[in-house]
């Protein structure tokens, strides 16, 4: 409930920002995994291979991964992406508009949004042991319909 409100808040703010960064409404019908990351965050490095695998394996079932980069300096993000290639969408938000609206409290933080556009869960941090539970949550949402 609280999380849904947060999402609504982020949508209205997005509209004010031109909605250019992330248009979640257009992704209705898909399961969206929004991940906030930064080049300087150590666990973020560990999350990238897993997100690549998720996009490869579950993309056909309707999973969309959107990684929101919050680096102030764009070249830091590019450097990171050269070392850790991403096979999913990356949105650049150097001014921290999206994490502010989503209420991100640490790096990384991810939000799992169901096909109806509701935020179903928030996950703070990323550890190797988080991979299986997160994968399971995504699968459950993908097959909820």
């Amino acid at each position: 409930m609280l999380l849904s409100l947060l999402l609504l808040a982020s949508r209205s703010a997005l509209a004010a920002n031109g909605g250019q960064l992330l248009d979640l409404a257009a992704l209705k019908g898909q399961v969206v995994y929004v991940d906030f990351w930064a080049s300087w965050c150590a666990p973020c490095r560990e999350s990238f291979p897993w997100m690549n695998r998720m996009q490869d394996e579950l993309g056909r079932d309707g999973l969309v991964i959107i990684a929101v980069n919050v680096d102030h300096d764009h070249s830091d993000a590019e450097h990171f992406l050269r070392e850790h290639p991403a096979r999913f969408r990356v949105v650049f938000d150097p001014d921290g508009v999206l994490p502010g609206q989503f209420g991100v409290r640490g790096m990384p933080t991810s939000f799992l949004i169901d096909r109806d556009g509701r935020v179903q869960s928030r996950h703070a941090g990323f550890r190797l042991t988080d991979r299986d539970p997160l994968t399971q949550q995504i699968r459950v949402l993908l097959h909820a319909h």
Binding site: L22, G59, P85, R87, R89, V90
Partner: peptide, 22 residues
């Protein structure tokens, strides 16, 4: 034609940047 392909990811990106592999 495959939704999980990098081409599909790029085509669905709606104006945002996609980082691609080598």
């Amino acid at each position: 034609y495959r939704p999980e392909s990098i081409v599909s990811v790029i085509n669905r990106s709606q104006g945002s940047a996609v980082a691609v592999d080598l």
